[in-house]
Design a protein around this nucleic acid. Structure first.
Lengths: 122, 122
DNA sequence: CAGTATCCTGCACGATACTG
DNA sequence: CAGTATCGTGCAGGATACTG
């Protein structure tokens, strides 16, 4: 059911409940680095230091933390290869790739928005 | 062009540019109160104090600030009716309503995610 | 190579009081 | 009614150093 299709007269509890999954999705993408990391991995599997190089400005700490978040949410898979020194590869899970549809939708709207407010971006 | 369809070998500049509109869309929805406000207004035009009552926990300051943000981004229209005391009505613009599609997409994914991590939400 | 550990800072947001 | 003004505060994120 879409927003527009919802009948009026919903209780606050129902409205709050309707917001929860949207919040969840937004939380997954929130923060400064989630998007760059997801996009980077969407182009192919990467190793830690490779991503650290490819994402301008990110610190090891943030990369490590955000990758862990994404792994906990099952969007990213961490694979350790037994070598010396150790090799760790990160990849998007199939589930993580399902986010691309959402990101594409956000981009479509964002492109529209850029055009609309062109020249007076905050 | 979707993420998946992009060819490898893009420059960092190009990647960064591809992220920008997504960031824009995300920024519009970011923060604690944007979503509740947008959802509230999607059910119909509202007056300030009416929204303040309907959105549990929001302060006048935040409601005022977020409504101004949304107005600046042309998602919300503020109409002042000449009465004593003054009456102000907020409504979604047609443009603002175009966000509902994005929100619905976020919700669809969020519902999936809730099922996937059911029982172990952070 | 693939990360932690510590310390620090800015800003989103909250509490409370006040106003045309 | 429809908001500002002022003062706090917690936490996301940054800088830097260190480690198995």
């Amino acid at each position: 059911m879409t927003l527009a299709q919802q009948k009026p007269g919903k209780t606050h509890a129902e409205c709050t409940k309707a917001i929860l999954p949207v919040r969840d999705a937004l939380d997954i993408l929130s923060g400064k680095w989630k998007l760059p990391i997801i996009i980077s991995l969407s182009f192919g599997n990467k190793r830690f230091s490779q991503m650290a190089k490819e994402i301008p400005g990110i610190t090891d700490k943030m990369l490590s933390k955000e990758l862990r978040d994404l792994e906990i949410n099952q969007l990213v898979k961490r694979t350790v290869y037994d070598a010396v020194p150790v090799v760790v590869e990160y990849s998007m899970t199939p589930y993580g790739k399902s986010l691309e549809r959402v990101i594409d939708e956000l981009r479509d709207w964002g492109v529209l928005h850029r055009k609309k407010v062109m020249g007076k971006m905050k």
